[in-house]
Structures are given as structure tokens and as C-alpha cells.
Design a binder for these strands. Structure first.
Lengths: 348, 348
DNA sequence: ATGAAAGCGCTAACAA
DNA sequence: TTGTTAGCGCTTTCAT
């Protein structure tokens, strides 16, 4: 593979154009274009001749020219904000990798950007839309109340969200992971291990994602006729909060297991267990959420709910494709199931 | 901010062009172009009039047209391979975030891609070059022997590497982090804590990066008149290898401290200490490399060498800019200093 | 300091 | 089935 580029004198590189191919194959430029985009229109022998010329010259269509003509860049924009240093959640990074793979299959590419004004939801999006730099966006931060989504909807800009719209009026396609199903699986797993006093440590009430995950725990507990009163805590998403919440719950409610809204909080619980000489899994069970890379690196491992980001990316790209070819106009969502990865922190 | 897009009947969006601005301002299209690209050429009042028209119409230049004309996309390509699940090293992901920020300041964007044939070094690069989809590349995986670098050099494609060329003949700009300086700092830190028997756990000899990091340890040990014989181990980069190597070294060489080539190996050491009832920091000190997100989440924290990826990204973009404006033609490298982040695993 | 002409490389629409 | 014409929106060159 990788035919050599033709070097010209000034050191720059000169690439063959469609006209070069046409001349070599003895056809018009339009015929070459058709050979590329509508090969079925050509007679077999013509197609063969054109293809031979293309291969011989190492021709690849110029994207700028094609973009200008078709008004489409085959680029998908994704806003990537600065790296979150204080958390170990790598979901967004896993998603970026997955999106690159998923878009490749659909012959799209991912364009990364970030707005210069974090306060302005349209920041960054705006320029890319107006300059027709991207065909569509993937929006990942809908949990922030998604002002981006509202802005893009208003402007008629195509986009698909990774994350449910938590505002009722939203009218865009989305793909999300069923957090409640994940925590429900974790809770059921702990019940199966013989636990009955299972505590919850999650986020503050204003986080819809947190409330969703919490619902999986409480629903499953109640479904088994078990009480949840006094067994839940709502805190900030940091290790220190997890440590503290676990301490209070252990003192006051004596749970034998913890279901946490994040791996960060689960880490806090593990620290608290360690401080008390309690063994994770054997003495007190713990489950996290998001399956951060370190979940498998902890001694014994941390049981965690894993989001199928690869599948999310595939679905997102699928919807994007439909959106851009006008094959699907109305809002619609897909909810994917996460999986519970069981490790030492929840098994005796 | 965020002026509304003009909606037309069919639901699509129609954007103003340079001609619209020209008509509104009562000037030629060329004058509008100059207002954008060479404002100093215009008379103050003309410039003012054009700018008012631009603002009123919410005009943004069409990228495809500009790219076609200028033969430049202002896009930088970065190959992003599938997420590494077995390691907690987030350096590449930190770098992606940093690169987005750094390119923004230079009015570039990052285009992510991956080749469909992992075995072919030119896979993915090739199409983007020939289609003039990107102006240049950032190459990050030079540690693999960088066949990419060789391919790009041969094709005369502009690129800057994050990582030194480990092949002597390489002739491209690069930015890298001085791994030896990092492990040297870690070793010196341990010496200052009173340790003298400091072991090394690193990678196999065929990894130039690993040898570089190892050199920092051995150089510093020897500089203090301390022997290194029997204190070094070369293994695979996984937790299990770290556990095993630490076990062997503890049994045979009785070190009181470990300098590791990665956080993954350091994690293995911590597991071994835990299994033996030894307290990290108090009984045996441990340092890692790369400052993975979980380094701060471990109980007490893991001391680690942190690469200044934000600065790397800035330097990379700076070289890219020079390369693309022909202001710098010859190969040149920049070696940046990492920092040691001291946490509980190395302090009593 | 401003404008007119030309054309980057491609594809949509139409003609042959 | 293939070719011709036109033009996407911009910037370079040259003229005024």
C-alpha cells in the first residue's frame, strides 16, 4: 500500500487531480467522478480503464473541492473540554476512542474542538456550523442541562446526544446507557451474595444521572421487600466524600454492602474499610460505576458497572448517518444496557 | 454571541457568503476578503463598513472554499488507536485534551483517525494526505520504531512527533519528555528520605523509553556511590509482573524502596507490599511513572513522575506552525522536564 | 485603496 | 453510457 507521492522541484508535493485521471483514461472528468461515486453508471470496460488510471496515478479525490461542491465535510464535531484531573472516570476518553472507530466504518472523521468561553454553550459550535466545517455534532455533556442541545436544536444543526435529554421538551436523537439497570444489577448481585443491608452512596439530588442510578438501587431493594431508610447518602463526587459517607453509614446503619454512583465514591468506601481493618468483599462488599481503568488494578479488584461505550458510539454514528441522509427526522432515543463486571470487592 | 442562523423554507440552513457581505457593504468581494485576511490594506471607514455588514449578517467564511483555494485545511491529524483496557496509563488521553486546547490558540483543529490496517504504518495517514484533508500530523507512537515517521518523511508530509526518534537517521521535529530526569528525580527523592537500597522495576531491554527511564535510576545511584547490582528487574508492563518482580527483589535483595517505569508496575509493588503486611511509604517506598489518575486515589497516594503533556502539546503546535509556514525546515527536538508528584507511597 | 478576472477540484444538471 | 456546461465560495493576480 501507500504509493509514493509525486515530488516536485520546490519540495512541495503535487497530487493528481480528477482531470489527470480523465486524460489518462481517455474519458471526461465527469466519467471519472461517476466511477468514484456511481460506478454502476459506467460500462464495465470504461470503469476498468478509469480504475486502472486511478490506481496508476495514486489518485485520491480532493476533500476541499468535494466538500465545497457537496456542501458536506464528512466530519463530525465533538467538543472535548480539558482533562478532568480530579476524577478517574475515563468514560469520555473511552468514548472518543470508540467514536473514532465507529466513524471510520461510516467514512466519517472526528473533529475535536473546545469553545473559548466555557460559559457560553454555543462557544465553539457556532464557528464550526457557520463555516460548514462539520456536518453534525455529537453532544456528550447533556447532563449539564444541555444548553448546547437547545442551541443546536434552535439553529437546526444536526446532532446526536450521548445522554438522555433531561429536559422534557427536547426533540433530538439520543443514545444513552440505562444507569438504573446497572445499579439494579449491582444490587441484585449483592442480594444474591446474601446481603440484605445494602447502602447507597450517590450524588446530590440535582443530578438526573445520579437520581437515575439511585433508582436502580432503591427499586431493587423494595422489590425484594427490603427497606432503604437510613441507608442512603448523597454527597459530592470525590474520594473524601466517599470516605466520610461510608463512615457515617457504617456507624449508624451497619450495612454489609455499598452500591456507589461512581468508582470515585467506591474508592472512598474502600479507603474507609481499609482504615477500619475491614476486608472488601469478605467483610463488606462494594460496587462502583463506570469501570474506570483502575478498577481492575486495585488489589482484588473493584466490582463496577461498565457502560458499553463502543456500542453507544456505533449507535450514535448510525443515527447521525440517518439524520444526515434525511432518513430519520424525528426525535428518538436508544437506551443500552450496561454490564456488571464482578471483581473481588463484592465476592467473598 | 451566537447569532441566529437564517432558516429557509425547506428546513435547511442558508448561510451568508462573502458576496452577500460585499453587496451589503457596497464593496467588491475582494475587499471583504481583504477585510478578513489583510485588514491593514483597507481604509478605516471601509473596514468599518465591511465589519458592520459581517456582524449584521453573521458571516463566517466557508471553510471548504477557503481550503480549496489556499490548499490548507487548518486541520491537524492525530491517529488514535483503540483504548488500551489493560493499563491505566492515561497519558495519550491527557495529550489529546491538551492538543485540542493548544491547537485552538493557533486556530487549528484536531482531526482524529485510525487506520483500518494496524500492521500498515501508513494506514489512515495515506488517505488524509492525498485528499489534503489535513495540513500535518502529530505522531505519538514513535516508540514502536516509528515506521510512520519514516513513511511521512519519505512522502514529505509535515509532522511533529511526541516522542524522540529512536532511530538515528530521523530528520523531523519532535518534542519529548526526559524520562531519565524523571526517574532520577524519583531516585534522588528516595535517597533524601534515607533510602540506599533502591530497586528498579522496568521494561524489557528492547524498549528505548524503558532504557531511558532506567538510566535515570542507575545514573543517580552510581552518582551517590551506591551499587545497583541485583537491584534491577525487567518485566512486562502489567500488574502481575510488578507483583512478581517485587516479590523476588524483596526476597533476594532486600530493597527499602522501588522506582518503577510505570504506575502499572508500581501498582504491582503495592500489591506485593500489601500481601506481606508492609506499609507503603513507612516500610517500603514506591514511585511510579506517568501519574495516572488513580495515583491520587490510592490510599495514601502513589508518588509518580508526571509528564507535562500540556506543555508538550503547546510545543508541538508551535513547531507545527513553523513547519507549515516554512519558518523552520530542519530537524530539531525539544526535551521537557517531568515533575515528581510526591504522595504517601514514598514518605514516612 | 479598491475592483475585475480567473480558477482551485469537484459534482449536479443537463445534453448528446 | 458518456460528455458539456456551470458553479460551489473563496483568494490570487493583476489592473485601476
Amino acid at each position: 500500500m501507500g504509493r509514493e507521492l509525486h515530488r516536485v522541484q520546490d519540495g512541495a508535493t503535487s497530487l493528481p487531480t480528477l482531470a489527470d485521471v480523465a486524460a489518462m483514461a481517455g474519458v471526461s472528468r465527469q466519467t471519472v467522478s461517476n466511477a468514484l461515486n456511481n460506478p454502476s453508471l459506467l460500462r464495465a470496460d470504461t470503469l476498468e480503464r478509469v480504475r486502472a488510471a486511478i490506481a496508476h496515478l495514486g489518485y485520491t479525490p480532493n476533500r476541499a473541492a468535494r466538500n465545497l461542491r457537496t456542501k458536506s465535510s464528512r466530519l463530525i464535531g465533538l467538543r472535548l473540554t480539558p482533562f478532568a484531573e480530579d476524577t478517574a472516570n475515563a468514560t469520555i476518553d473511552r468514548f472518543v476512542h470508540a467514536l473514532v472507530q465507529a466513524t471510520r466504518a461510516a467514512d466519517y472523521h472526528v473533529l475535536l474542538f473546545d469553545g473559548n468561553d466555557p460559559a457560553d454553550p454555543s462557544s465553539g459550535y457556532d464557528d464550526l456550523v457557520r463555516s460548514t466545517a462539520v456536518d453534525a455534532f455529537v453532544v456528550t455533556d447533556t447532563f449539564k442541562g444541555s444548553p448546547q442541545a437547545a442551541y443546536l436544536e434552535d439553529g437546526g444543526v444536526p446532532f446526536v446526544a450521548f445522554g438522555r435529554p433531561w429536559t422534557p421538551a427536547a426533540l433530538h436523537p439520543w443514545v444513552d446507557v440505562d444507569g438504573a439497570a446497572g445499579t439494579s444489577a449491582a444490587t441484585a448481585h449483592l442480594l444474591a451474595q446474601g446481603h440484605t443491608r445494602i447502602a447507597w452512596i450517590g450524588w446530590r439530588k440535582d443530578s438526573p444521572i445520579g437520581e437515575d442510578r439511585r433508582a436502580g438501587w432503591s427499586r431493587t431493594m423494595h422489590g425484594h421487600g427490603l427497606p432503604t431508610t437510613g441507608l442512603a447518602s448523597r454527597v459530592e463526587d470525590c474520594v473524601a466524600s466517599g470516605v466520610e459517607a461510608a463512615g457515617v453509614l457504617l456507624d449508624e446503619a451497619r450495612p454489609t454492602a455499598f452500591v456507589c454512583a461512581s468508582d470515585t465514591l467506591a474508592t472512598g468506601v474502600l479507603h474507609q474499610l481499609h482504615a477500619r481493618g475491614l476486608r472488601p468483599g469478605r467483610d463488606v462488599a462494594v460496587t462502583g460505576f463506570d469501570d474506570a481503568p483502575f478498577a481492575q488494578l486495585l488489589p482484588g479488584g473493584l466490582t463496577s458497572v461498565r457502560q458499553p461505550v463502543e456500542e453507544v458510539a456505533v449507535q450514535v454514528v448510525d443515527r447521525l448517518g440517518k439524520l444526515l441522509t434525511h432518513r430519520e427526522v424525528f426525535a428518538s432515543g436508544t437506551l443500552l444496557e450496561p454490564t456488571l463486571v464482578v471483581r473481588g470487592s463484592s465476592e467473598r
